[in-house]
Write a protein that binds this DNA or RNA. Structure first.
Lengths: 403, 403
DNA sequence: CCGACTTGATTCGGTGATCGAAGAAAGTGG
DNA sequence: CCACTTTCTTCGATCACCGAATCAAGTCGG
């Protein structure tokens, strides 16, 4: 199943936005929605009715009065998981199920060996999603309450409506195919969407992991900002771009892939792509591990590196600073060029203070004053669920639009 | 008069697009428009009627039959200039009047001394536009014509509907104010829009010159492409960004300003901004002139430099190559990040072969294969009218939208 | 405990943009 | 001269949205 680009038209008061307002608690009643969306009460009522009929929204009794008639409270049905999400990482994958509002219902982190190849890895993860989404009764992991058996017809909650998948490498979003990934041996050219479509019979949406983080973070924290850039600095380095409120994928769907931009580095380290001085070879988690080992510091993985940095190890801290500068250099070009309202950094390296500080400094030094004068430079809310949240939003946008 | 952001909503078959199709000759009849826009014949007829009533379109007899009823030909009225445009450059300004289809009616190039300050420069240029737009009969140059008794209805052709102005420096588009320009002494903080609004009583739209070039080039040559980047390399260096078919200005309106991005250069030259190694200090026309003079080559201006390069002068050519590499380096980051369908270079340096060749090479070397695999790298159609064309489109979008 | 005022939600035309079908206008070609 | 094209208009039907009136269900002051 090939998915074309999904969320094109105006969200302005569209069903998705109403849903999100209810989900986030920004709106509780029809009147709230009317005020927020600017739509007339009648229109909102009508829209809400169709959402309720679709099983995407439900009425949950009356709320507290504010001096007049009590509002009829609205909520997103909690009748079970409805959207599946997989956020594949270098060593671990976060899988989960989320309700149609984008809230995580169940989430699990599984160890993953990328080198086992796509069939095996994706097969296992898909099975896990299916298990999570299956009528709970059985395992009772989180005791998913079945609240009032699926009342009505075909659109009852609890059905899996789609699966969003994030891949730590370049993905041609339109086709769902992986293209020349750096650190995913055996995955080149693999058609993720087609493979998954053969296993489960729901819409599959595949995207780059940084894009998912960007979407998740934007919808969660910056939904009112038009232009945003999110950097994901973990084992690898990627970025996701929000332009005019929407995920910018570019011509080939490879927008945001800054991992092989060249930066100045003292001994320019060789990158897995064959070039020297790639951002990824200087500033990624994998690069830090390699560099430390080369200096004779015994460190096993990124966690170890971060621990060293937190402990104030000289070598590790120096490397982190260099990494921050490198990211800042590239980001400076991006900020000048794109002039976003916010730049946020996520991933495991985002909690690394020296790196962040160097990045900020470089950014302020190298950017046009006009571009930084109101620029927010933030950390992405540190949560392991950002990725699957973004994945879910992608699926929800697709599903609700199609409804 | 402050102009807010203009062209927000769908152009899909909007009045502007119909107008443009007729103007470009892509459509001659209502039936053509219907086929092109996908709108139903009835809708098109209705829209065309209102456009005719507004004086933006007219019927010009019948065309040739294609086996059935002859089409009633449509055209943009040629009743005189209707939109003014000013493309201010470092040493010259191109001013002109264009009809509502974006075709140049009259164009003139005037020498300009930026250092005379905004009042004097803009005052003279505005007067020139007014003269061009005035009912032709009188030659009088100054004579800010009171656009006199509007002949027929309020919407007759021949009336000046607005003026678009391009500035070779950072412009806060929302306010029309200039912010810390490099090479415009005495212009910092000047409110162009307000100044002009005090002189003429039509909408004034101010933007960066690179943005105007981008808009002009995109509408002229790439209107079917969603994402495009245009580089303007002349005395200075700037760029304009088209995202999802629309001009991307970013948070502060400074998007595309890559002139002070740092690049590696052997003796990193000092930039007018005080930093060293800015792209503008390495690759702009002004930088080439300075560098050649420092090498003892007597050269007066950019024209001289280009002549030297064309003549195969070693020093000049080497500098051009270095400039091309520098632009390519920055552009590589931009292409990886933004993943456009096309990158086009304009400005006077665009005709410089060695520069272009180096830029292309660098781009292909440094970019993700996925990003360059279908990327078009072109020269912007070399015309002195690209800038004012873009300016006119900006005004037309604004005017037709308001109608 | 009763009315005046508030707030929340629905009902019911009304408007504007668009579509589709039908038909009128104006040709071409055998 | 008749069949068939192409172009354009006319005329409801539909859809989304709005606004005003109305209904529903409170609070609150006296």
């Amino acid at each position: 199943m090939t998915i074309d680009d999904a969320p094109r038209e105006a969200l302005r008061g569209g069903p998705r936005e109403l849903l999100r307002w209810v989900a986030t608690g920004a709106a509780v009643s029809r009147a709230d929605l009317s005020r927020l969306s600017g739509l007339s009460p009648s229109t909102v009522s009508q829209r809400v009715e169709t959402l309720i009929n679709q099983g995407l929204l439900e009425e949950t009794g009356a709320g507290r009065s504010r001096g007049g008639r009590r509002p009829r409270q609205l909520a997103v049905p909690t009748g079970g998981a409805v959207v599946g999400a997989i956020d594949l990482g270098a060593h671990h994958a976060r899988v989960g199920t989320l309700d149609l509002s984008g809230r995580v219902v169940q989430g699990r982190t599984l160890p993953v060996r990328i080198e086992d190849g796509p069939e095996q890895v994706l097969g296992a993860l898909l099975a896990e999603v299916a298990a999570l989404a299956a009528p709970s009764a059985s395992t009772a992991s989180g005791l998913v309450s079945s609240p009032t058996a699926s009342t009505t017809a075909d659109n009852a909650a609890g059905v899996l409506r789609g699966i969003g998948i994030g891949i730590p490498g370049p993905v041609q979003h339109a086709t769902g195919r992986i293209v020349s990934p750096s650190r995913m041996p055996g995955w080149n050219g693999f058609d993720v969407a087609a493979f998954c479509a053969g296993r489960v019979d729901v819409p599959i949406i595949v995207d780059n992991d940084a894009n998912l983080m960007a979407l998740g973070a934007h919808r969660t924290a910056h939904s009112e900002l038009d232009h945003a850039v999110y950097i994901k600095a973990g084992t690898g380095i990627g970025s996701g771009v929000i332009s005019s409120g929407r995920l910018h994928r570019g011509a080939q769907g490879s927008a945001g892939d800054i991992s092989h931009c060249r930066v100045v580095a003292d001994p320019a380290p060789l990158c897995s792509c064959g070039n020297a001085g790639c951002l990824e070879a200087v500033a990624s988690g994998a690069a830090l591990v390699t560099a430390l080992r080369d200096q004779g510091v015994p460190v096993s993985d990124l966690t170890g590196v971060i621990r060293l940095i937190d402990d104030g190890d000289r070598h590790a801290t120096a490397l982190a600073r260099q990494a921050g500068r490198a990211i800042g250099e590239i980001l400076a070009v991006v900020v000048n060029f794109f002039n976003p309202q916010v730049v946020a950094i996520g991933g495991r390296l985002a909690d690394c203070e020296p790196l962040l500080a160097s990045m900020r400094a470089t950014l302020y030094e190298r950017c046009l004053p006009l571009a930084t004068q109101t620029l927010l430079i933030e950390r992405v809310a540190t949560s392991q669920d950002i990725g699957i949240t973004g994945a879910a939003h992608l699926v929800i946008d697709h599903v609700v639009a199609a409804a």
